[in-house]
């Protein structure tokens, strides 16, 4: 089927147009105001702040700290969450008891837990990892459980008609059919993990992008603060891109070329 305007992929330059327009408007706005850059920052001032942080090494140190913490919490939370979700899908009675609690916990803002976790686990790396892991665990468990419950009954009946036991049905049908939900959970959890670590660094930290933003806020260094926001955005894009690549690799059957 020939490509139409609806099926042809959107070119990269077109996707960048809104960003470029925004940057231009921002720059013009900041320069047109008295002390505009001080109060609002500007693309050029943010770029200068990033270069400065890269030169003095704080950019790499803070990024490594934050990214490492995010990855640790993300992996722990998602692995345990996926396992918990699958166990609950397999043990339906247990799921009936536990599922409502997961729903309630998922609705609570992570910032509500941050002070308690800091008190329990201290002010070093651990509380940030725990906060990220806890936040991502809830979503991973819920998505995995819901995905497992969405398994087509005809696929289950197929294996049952061939004499497969429940464990084999779970392994060969339920888990593979839940893959789409796994990756949806992973995508959601990127932002959740970053937010959790960010909040942890706001409350108490000695390093990290969130910590640096707090320091720059105290010094009224708006461009440096916004540079931190740019770094967080890049981290988020990077992690989401990796997950997207993994999803495409493991879900080739959904969108064959």
């Amino acid at each position: 089927m020939p490509a139409t305007s609806e099926t042809r992929p959107t070119p990269l330059w077109l996707k960048l147009v809104p960003l470029v327009v925004f940057l231009v408007v921002w720059q013009v706005f900041a320069e047109s105001r008295e002390r505009g850059t001080f109060f609002y920052g500007s693309p050029t001032s943010v770029a200068r702040a990033l270069v400065e942080q890269a030169r003095n090494g704080s950019l790499w140190k803070n990024c490594a700290y934050t990214l490492g913490t995010v990855l640790l919490g993300f992996i722990i939370g998602n692995v345990t969450g996926i396992i918990a979700g699958l166990v609950l899908a397999f043990a339906r009675r247990c799921a009936g008891v536990i599922r409502p609690y997961l729903t309630v916990l998922g609705a609570l803002p992570v910032i509500a837990f941050a002070p308690i976790i800091v008190i329990l686990f201290g002010i070093e790396l651990l509380p940030k990892v725990v906060l990220a892991a806890f936040s991502t665990f809830i979503i991973a468990a819920t998505q995995t459980f819901d995905g497992a419950r969405q398994t087509p009954p005809s696929s289950i009946a197929l294996l049952e008609s061939l004499g497969a036991n429940q464990f084999t049905v779970f392994r060969k049908i339920v888990i593979p059919s839940s893959l789409v939900w796994f990756f949806s959970g992973l995508r959601l959890n990127v932002g959740v993990a970053i937010l959790a670590v960010f909040i942890g660094e706001f409350i108490s930290a000695k390093a990290g992008v969130g910590y640096q933003i707090m320091v720059d806020m105290g010094l009224f260094k708006t461009p440096a603060m916004l540079a931190g926001v740019v770094l967080i955005s890049v981290m988020s894009l990077l992690l989401t891109g990796i997950i997207g690549w993994l999803q495409n690799h493991f879900s080739r059957w959904r969108c064959p070329d």
Binding site: P152, S155, L159, L162, G163, I173, P176, S251, W253
Partner: peptide, 28 residues
């Protein structure tokens, strides 16, 4: 253990290619 049942909606597993789908009964 005594029947092979073809359901109304063919029930091919979408994440398996054709060969893998056909091999499914043997894998059990």
């Amino acid at each position: 253990q005594h029947t092979a049942y073809l359901f109304q909606d063919h029930s091919l597993l979408p994440w398996r290619n054709v060969l893998q789908n056909v091999l499914l009964p043997a894998e059990l």
